[in-house]
Design a binder for these strands. Sequence first.
DNA 1: CCTACCGATCGGTAGG
DNA 2: CCTACCGATCGGTAGG
Lengths: 176, 176
Amino acid sequence: MFKEKGYAATSMRGLASEVGIEAASLYNHIKSKHDILQEVCFEIAGHFLMNLEEPYDQNLSATERLKIAIENHLHVIIDNIDAAAVFFNEWRHLENEQLQIFKKMRGDYENHFLEILKAGQKSGEFRKVNEKLIALTLFNSMNWIYQRYQPKGKWDSKKIANELAELFITGIKNKN
Amino acid sequence: MFKEKGYAATSMRGLASEVGIEAASLYNHIKSKHDILQEVCFEIAGHFLMNLEEPYDQNLSATERLKIAIENHLHVIIDNIDAAAVFFNEWRHLENEQLQIFKKMRGDYENHFLEILKAGQKSGEFRKVNEKLIALTLFNSMNWIYQRYQPKGKWDSKKIANELAELFITGIKNKN
DNA sequence: CCTACCGATCGGTAGG
DNA sequence: CCTACCGATCGGTAGG
Protein backbone atom coordinates (compact mmCIF):
# COMPACT_ATOMS: atom_id res chain seq x y z
CA MET A 1 0.00 0.00 0.00
CA PHE A 2 2.91 2.36 0.70
CA LYS A 3 4.10 1.56 -2.80
CA GLU A 4 0.78 2.19 -4.50
CA LYS A 5 -0.68 5.09 -2.54
CA GLY A 6 2.37 6.49 -0.82
CA TYR A 7 3.14 6.58 2.88
CA ALA A 8 1.12 9.67 3.76
CA ALA A 9 -1.97 8.58 1.86
CA THR A 10 -2.00 5.13 3.47
CA SER A 11 -4.03 4.96 6.66
CA MET A 12 -3.65 2.57 9.55
CA ARG A 13 -7.30 1.61 9.02
CA GLY A 14 -6.49 0.80 5.41
CA LEU A 15 -3.50 -1.32 6.38
CA ALA A 16 -5.54 -3.09 9.03
CA SER A 17 -8.41 -3.99 6.73
CA GLU A 18 -5.90 -5.35 4.22
CA VAL A 19 -4.78 -7.80 6.92
CA GLY A 20 -8.32 -8.43 8.07
CA ILE A 21 -8.17 -6.89 11.55
CA GLU A 22 -9.06 -3.59 13.22
CA ALA A 23 -6.71 -0.63 13.18
CA ALA A 24 -6.23 -0.73 16.94
CA SER A 25 -5.00 -4.30 16.72
CA LEU A 26 -2.09 -3.32 14.52
CA TYR A 27 -0.48 -1.74 17.54
CA ASN A 28 0.11 -5.14 19.03
CA HIS A 29 2.57 -5.78 16.22
CA ILE A 30 4.07 -2.38 15.56
CA LYS A 31 4.84 0.71 17.55
CA SER A 32 3.65 3.31 15.03
CA LYS A 33 3.06 4.00 11.38
CA HIS A 34 6.50 5.55 11.19
CA ASP A 35 7.95 2.37 12.54
CA ILE A 36 6.76 0.41 9.53
CA LEU A 37 8.35 2.89 7.14
CA GLN A 38 11.60 2.78 9.07
CA GLU A 39 11.76 -0.98 9.03
CA VAL A 40 11.12 -1.17 5.30
CA CYS A 41 13.62 1.54 4.41
CA PHE A 42 16.42 0.26 6.60
CA GLU A 43 15.89 -3.33 5.64
CA ILE A 44 16.56 -2.43 2.02
CA ALA A 45 19.38 -0.09 2.94
CA GLY A 46 20.94 -3.02 4.76
CA HIS A 47 20.75 -5.19 1.64
CA PHE A 48 22.45 -2.54 -0.46
CA LEU A 49 25.18 -1.91 2.08
CA MET A 50 25.90 -5.59 2.46
CA ASN A 51 27.00 -5.61 -1.15
CA LEU A 52 29.67 -3.05 -0.31
CA GLU A 53 31.05 -4.97 2.61
CA GLU A 54 31.89 -8.05 0.63
CA PRO A 55 35.64 -7.98 0.26
CA TYR A 56 36.59 -8.00 -3.37
CA ASP A 57 39.48 -9.62 -5.12
CA GLN A 58 42.21 -7.02 -5.46
CA ASN A 59 43.03 -8.37 -8.87
CA LEU A 60 39.65 -7.43 -10.27
CA SER A 61 39.67 -4.64 -12.82
CA ALA A 62 37.45 -1.60 -12.37
CA THR A 63 35.41 -2.90 -15.28
CA GLU A 64 34.76 -6.15 -13.51
CA ARG A 65 34.03 -4.45 -10.22
CA LEU A 66 31.53 -2.15 -11.90
CA LYS A 67 29.80 -5.07 -13.50
CA ILE A 68 29.47 -6.83 -10.15
CA ALA A 69 28.18 -3.65 -8.50
CA ILE A 70 25.49 -3.29 -11.16
CA GLU A 71 24.47 -6.93 -10.83
CA ASN A 72 24.28 -6.74 -7.05
CA HIS A 73 22.31 -3.53 -7.09
CA LEU A 74 19.74 -4.83 -9.53
CA HIS A 75 19.36 -8.06 -7.62
CA VAL A 76 18.52 -6.25 -4.40
CA ILE A 77 15.78 -4.32 -6.18
CA ILE A 78 14.36 -7.30 -8.01
CA ASP A 79 14.46 -9.55 -4.96
CA ASN A 80 12.65 -6.97 -2.82
CA ILE A 81 10.55 -5.25 -5.38
CA ASP A 82 7.78 -3.79 -3.22
CA ALA A 83 10.06 -2.77 -0.39
CA ALA A 84 12.48 -1.24 -2.88
CA ALA A 85 9.67 0.90 -4.28
CA VAL A 86 8.95 2.23 -0.80
CA PHE A 87 12.65 2.73 -0.19
CA PHE A 88 13.06 4.91 -3.27
CA ASN A 89 9.80 6.86 -3.02
CA GLU A 90 8.99 7.25 0.65
CA TRP A 91 12.30 7.76 2.42
CA ARG A 92 11.67 11.48 2.72
CA HIS A 93 8.93 10.76 5.26
CA LEU A 94 11.58 9.47 7.63
CA GLU A 95 12.18 11.88 10.49
CA ASN A 96 15.10 13.51 12.25
CA GLU A 97 17.97 11.13 13.00
CA GLN A 98 16.49 8.40 10.87
CA LEU A 99 16.47 10.73 7.89
CA GLN A 100 20.06 11.77 8.57
CA ILE A 101 21.20 8.18 8.85
CA PHE A 102 19.40 7.31 5.66
CA LYS A 103 21.01 10.12 3.71
CA LYS A 104 24.43 9.18 5.01
CA MET A 105 23.96 5.58 3.97
CA ARG A 106 22.85 6.62 0.53
CA GLY A 107 25.85 8.90 0.18
CA ASP A 108 28.21 6.11 1.20
CA TYR A 109 26.60 3.84 -1.31
CA GLU A 110 26.86 6.33 -4.14
CA ASN A 111 30.50 6.84 -3.27
CA HIS A 112 31.12 3.20 -4.00
CA PHE A 113 30.18 3.75 -7.63
CA LEU A 114 32.21 6.95 -7.64
CA GLU A 115 35.30 5.14 -6.43
CA ILE A 116 35.02 2.44 -9.06
CA LEU A 117 34.76 5.10 -11.75
CA LYS A 118 37.83 6.86 -10.39
CA ALA A 119 39.79 3.63 -10.22
CA GLY A 120 38.88 2.84 -13.80
CA GLN A 121 40.00 6.23 -15.02
CA LYS A 122 43.25 5.91 -13.13
CA SER A 123 43.95 2.51 -14.64
CA GLY A 124 43.04 3.76 -18.09
CA GLU A 125 40.12 1.41 -18.50
CA PHE A 126 37.65 4.28 -18.59
CA ARG A 127 37.83 7.54 -20.45
CA LYS A 128 37.77 10.88 -18.68
CA VAL A 129 34.25 11.62 -17.46
CA ASN A 130 32.53 13.86 -14.96
CA GLU A 131 32.67 11.11 -12.35
CA LYS A 132 30.03 12.45 -10.02
CA LEU A 133 27.52 13.03 -12.79
CA ILE A 134 28.11 9.62 -14.29
CA ALA A 135 28.05 7.85 -10.93
CA LEU A 136 24.68 9.41 -10.10
CA THR A 137 23.38 8.64 -13.57
CA LEU A 138 24.45 5.05 -13.27
CA PHE A 139 22.95 4.73 -9.81
CA ASN A 140 19.64 6.26 -10.84
CA SER A 141 19.40 4.50 -14.16
CA MET A 142 18.91 1.23 -12.30
CA ASN A 143 16.41 2.48 -9.74
CA TRP A 144 13.35 2.64 -11.97
CA ILE A 145 13.36 -1.09 -12.59
CA TYR A 146 10.94 -1.89 -9.77
CA GLN A 147 8.31 0.12 -11.68
CA ARG A 148 8.32 -2.17 -14.67
CA TYR A 149 9.83 -5.47 -13.70
CA GLN A 150 7.30 -8.27 -13.53
CA PRO A 151 8.45 -11.37 -11.70
CA LYS A 152 6.67 -13.57 -14.22
CA GLY A 153 7.35 -11.27 -17.18
CA LYS A 154 9.68 -11.77 -20.08
CA TRP A 155 12.62 -9.92 -18.58
CA ASP A 156 15.17 -11.97 -16.77
CA SER A 157 17.09 -10.29 -13.98
CA LYS A 158 20.44 -11.54 -15.24
CA LYS A 159 19.75 -10.34 -18.74
CA ILE A 160 18.81 -6.92 -17.42
CA ALA A 161 22.01 -6.75 -15.41
CA ASN A 162 24.10 -7.82 -18.40
CA GLU A 163 22.46 -5.39 -20.77
CA LEU A 164 22.79 -2.41 -18.41
CA ALA A 165 26.35 -3.29 -17.51
CA GLU A 166 27.26 -3.49 -21.18
CA LEU A 167 25.53 -0.19 -21.95
CA PHE A 168 27.43 1.69 -19.27
CA ILE A 169 30.76 -0.01 -19.56
CA THR A 170 30.80 0.42 -23.31
CA GLY A 171 29.75 4.03 -22.75
CA ILE A 172 32.71 4.89 -20.58
CA LYS A 173 35.39 2.57 -21.96
CA ASN A 174 38.47 4.10 -23.47
CA LYS A 175 38.37 3.76 -27.20
CA ASN A 176 41.15 1.47 -28.41
CA MET B 1 5.75 21.99 -0.78
CA PHE B 2 4.49 19.14 -2.97
CA LYS B 3 8.11 18.53 -3.89
CA GLU B 4 9.43 18.50 -0.35
CA LYS B 5 6.62 16.85 1.61
CA GLY B 6 4.68 15.14 -1.13
CA TYR B 7 1.15 15.85 -2.27
CA ALA B 8 -0.72 13.90 0.42
CA ALA B 9 1.33 15.32 3.28
CA THR B 10 0.87 18.92 2.15
CA SER B 11 -2.21 20.58 3.62
CA MET B 12 -4.23 23.45 2.22
CA ARG B 13 -3.55 25.27 5.47
CA GLY B 14 0.15 24.78 4.95
CA LEU B 15 0.00 26.04 1.38
CA ALA B 16 -2.06 29.04 2.48
CA SER B 17 0.30 30.09 5.24
CA GLU B 18 3.19 29.83 2.80
CA VAL B 19 1.42 32.47 0.69
CA GLY B 20 0.39 34.46 3.74
CA ILE B 21 -3.37 33.99 3.60
CA GLU B 22 -6.01 31.73 5.16
CA ALA B 23 -6.82 28.31 3.76
CA ALA B 24 -10.34 29.30 2.79
CA SER B 25 -8.98 32.13 0.66
CA LEU B 26 -7.09 29.72 -1.56
CA TYR B 27 -10.39 28.64 -3.03
CA ASN B 28 -10.76 31.98 -4.74
CA HIS B 29 -7.79 30.99 -6.89
CA ILE B 30 -8.13 27.27 -7.30
CA LYS B 31 -10.95 24.76 -7.40
CA SER B 32 -9.40 22.09 -5.22
CA LYS B 33 -6.17 20.61 -4.00
CA HIS B 34 -6.35 18.10 -6.79
CA ASP B 35 -6.59 20.93 -9.25
CA ILE B 36 -3.17 22.23 -8.30
CA LEU B 37 -1.61 18.83 -8.80
CA GLN B 38 -3.29 18.46 -12.16
CA GLU B 39 -2.10 21.82 -13.36
CA VAL B 40 1.49 21.15 -12.36
CA CYS B 41 1.57 17.66 -13.85
CA PHE B 42 -0.03 18.57 -17.14
CA GLU B 43 1.97 21.73 -17.54
CA ILE B 44 5.16 19.69 -17.48
CA ALA B 45 3.66 16.96 -19.62
CA GLY B 46 2.89 19.67 -22.16
CA HIS B 47 6.50 20.81 -22.21
CA PHE B 48 7.74 17.29 -22.80
CA LEU B 49 5.23 16.60 -25.53
CA MET B 50 6.00 19.85 -27.32
CA ASN B 51 9.46 18.49 -27.93
CA LEU B 52 7.98 15.60 -29.86
CA GLU B 53 5.84 17.74 -32.08
CA GLU B 54 8.68 19.73 -33.50
CA PRO B 55 9.13 18.42 -37.02
CA TYR B 56 12.61 17.11 -37.48
CA ASP B 57 14.86 17.21 -40.46
CA GLN B 58 14.46 13.91 -42.30
CA ASN B 59 18.16 13.92 -43.02
CA LEU B 60 19.10 13.71 -39.35
CA SER B 61 20.67 10.46 -38.28
CA ALA B 62 19.23 8.51 -35.36
CA THR B 63 22.34 9.49 -33.43
CA GLU B 64 21.64 13.15 -33.95
CA ARG B 65 17.96 12.75 -33.17
CA LEU B 66 18.78 10.95 -29.95
CA LYS B 67 21.14 13.68 -28.93
CA ILE B 68 18.48 16.34 -29.51
CA ALA B 69 15.89 14.30 -27.59
CA ILE B 70 18.24 14.05 -24.61
CA GLU B 71 19.00 17.76 -24.69
CA ASN B 72 15.34 18.72 -24.93
CA HIS B 73 14.34 16.39 -22.16
CA LEU B 74 16.97 17.66 -19.76
CA HIS B 75 16.13 21.25 -20.54
CA VAL B 76 12.49 20.78 -19.64
CA ILE B 77 13.50 19.34 -16.27
CA ILE B 78 16.11 21.97 -15.53
CA ASP B 79 13.90 24.87 -16.63
CA ASN B 80 11.02 23.67 -14.44
CA ILE B 81 12.86 22.01 -11.65
CA ASP B 82 10.28 22.14 -8.85
CA ALA B 83 7.34 21.32 -11.09
CA ALA B 84 9.34 18.48 -12.65
CA ALA B 85 9.92 16.99 -9.22
CA VAL B 86 6.17 17.01 -8.58
CA PHE B 87 5.58 15.58 -12.03
CA PHE B 88 7.85 12.62 -11.42
CA ASN B 89 6.92 11.91 -7.81
CA GLU B 90 3.28 12.83 -7.37
CA TRP B 91 1.55 11.86 -10.60
CA ARG B 92 0.08 8.75 -9.00
CA HIS B 93 -2.21 10.96 -6.91
CA LEU B 94 -3.99 11.99 -10.07
CA GLU B 95 -7.41 10.40 -10.32
CA ASN B 96 -9.48 8.51 -12.85
CA GLU B 97 -9.40 10.01 -16.33
CA GLN B 98 -6.59 12.37 -15.42
CA LEU B 99 -4.46 9.40 -14.41
CA GLN B 100 -5.31 7.55 -17.61
CA ILE B 101 -4.43 10.56 -19.75
CA PHE B 102 -1.20 11.00 -17.87
CA LYS B 103 -0.14 7.41 -18.39
CA LYS B 104 -1.00 7.57 -22.06
CA MET B 105 1.09 10.72 -22.51
CA ARG B 106 4.00 9.13 -20.72
CA GLY B 107 3.70 6.05 -22.90
CA ASP B 108 3.69 8.15 -26.06
CA TYR B 109 6.73 10.00 -24.87
CA GLU B 110 8.66 6.85 -24.06
CA ASN B 111 7.78 5.52 -27.48
CA HIS B 112 9.61 8.42 -29.02
CA PHE B 113 12.86 7.18 -27.53
CA LEU B 114 11.96 3.66 -28.53
CA GLU B 115 11.46 4.69 -32.15
CA ILE B 116 14.77 6.48 -32.31
CA LEU B 117 16.50 3.39 -30.99
CA LYS B 118 14.76 1.24 -33.57
CA ALA B 119 15.66 3.64 -36.38
CA GLY B 120 19.29 3.61 -35.29
CA GLN B 121 19.43 -0.15 -35.24
CA LYS B 122 17.83 -0.33 -38.66
CA SER B 123 20.33 2.12 -40.12
CA GLY B 124 23.21 0.29 -38.49
CA GLU B 125 24.22 3.22 -36.31
CA PHE B 126 23.36 1.33 -33.15
CA ARG B 127 24.14 -2.22 -32.19
CA LYS B 128 21.42 -4.73 -31.38
CA VAL B 129 19.94 -4.00 -27.97
CA ASN B 130 16.80 -4.77 -26.00
CA GLU B 131 15.18 -1.59 -27.22
CA LYS B 132 12.48 -1.35 -24.62
CA LEU B 133 14.86 -1.89 -21.72
CA ILE B 134 17.35 0.61 -23.07
CA ALA B 135 14.67 3.19 -23.91
CA LEU B 136 13.32 3.04 -20.37
CA THR B 137 16.81 3.16 -18.93
CA LEU B 138 17.65 6.18 -21.00
CA PHE B 139 14.42 7.89 -20.08
CA ASN B 140 14.82 7.23 -16.38
CA SER B 141 18.52 7.97 -16.26
CA MET B 142 17.74 11.63 -16.91
CA ASN B 143 14.84 11.97 -14.51
CA TRP B 144 16.81 12.12 -11.29
CA ILE B 145 18.56 15.33 -12.26
CA TYR B 146 16.03 17.60 -10.52
CA GLN B 147 17.16 16.04 -7.25
CA ARG B 148 20.71 17.27 -7.52
CA TYR B 149 20.85 20.09 -10.01
CA GLN B 150 21.46 23.45 -8.39
CA PRO B 151 20.68 26.44 -10.59
CA LYS B 152 23.71 28.27 -9.21
CA GLY B 153 25.82 25.14 -8.86
CA LYS B 154 28.82 24.07 -10.86
CA TRP B 155 26.90 21.91 -13.30
CA ASP B 156 25.91 23.53 -16.54
CA SER B 157 22.80 22.18 -18.23
CA LYS B 158 24.47 21.94 -21.62
CA LYS B 159 27.42 20.07 -20.19
CA ILE B 160 25.09 17.63 -18.51
CA ALA B 161 23.22 17.04 -21.74
CA ASN B 162 26.45 16.53 -23.68
CA GLU B 163 27.91 14.17 -21.14
CA LEU B 164 24.79 12.02 -20.90
CA ALA B 165 24.31 11.98 -24.64
CA GLU B 166 27.89 10.84 -25.10
CA LEU B 167 27.54 8.16 -22.45
CA PHE B 168 24.49 6.61 -24.04
CA ILE B 169 25.38 7.08 -27.66
CA THR B 170 28.83 5.60 -27.12
CA GLY B 171 27.15 2.81 -25.18
CA ILE B 172 24.91 1.74 -28.02
CA LYS B 173 27.01 2.61 -31.07
CA ASN B 174 28.08 -0.13 -33.36
CA LYS B 175 31.74 -0.89 -32.90
CA ASN B 176 33.70 -0.03 -36.00
C1' DC C 1 -7.58 -9.46 19.03
C1' DC C 2 -11.86 -6.18 19.96
C1' DT C 3 -15.07 -1.84 21.10
C1' DA C 4 -15.07 2.64 22.18
C1' DC C 5 -13.08 6.67 22.10
C1' DC C 6 -9.52 10.82 22.21
C1' DG C 7 -7.87 15.35 20.30
C1' DA C 8 -6.08 16.95 16.05
C1' DT C 9 -6.38 17.88 11.50
C1' DC C 10 -8.11 17.28 7.00
C1' DG C 11 -10.44 19.45 2.38
C1' DG C 12 -13.90 22.31 1.59
C1' DT C 13 -18.24 25.58 2.07
C1' DA C 14 -21.35 29.47 3.72
C1' DG C 15 -21.75 33.93 4.11
C1' DG C 16 -20.04 38.27 4.28
C1' DC D 1 -9.73 38.26 1.33
C1' DC D 2 -11.77 36.82 6.22
C1' DT D 3 -14.32 34.19 10.33
C1' DA D 4 -16.71 30.40 11.45
C1' DC D 5 -17.79 26.10 10.71
C1' DC D 6 -19.03 21.29 8.42
C1' DG D 7 -18.53 16.13 8.39
C1' DA D 8 -14.90 12.93 7.70
C1' DT D 9 -10.88 10.89 8.82
C1' DC D 10 -6.47 10.70 10.89
C1' DG D 11 -2.82 8.15 14.32
C1' DG D 12 -3.07 6.38 18.49
C1' DT D 13 -4.72 4.88 23.47
C1' DA D 14 -7.61 2.75 27.34
C1' DG D 15 -9.37 -1.08 28.91
C1' DG D 16 -10.80 -5.50 28.49
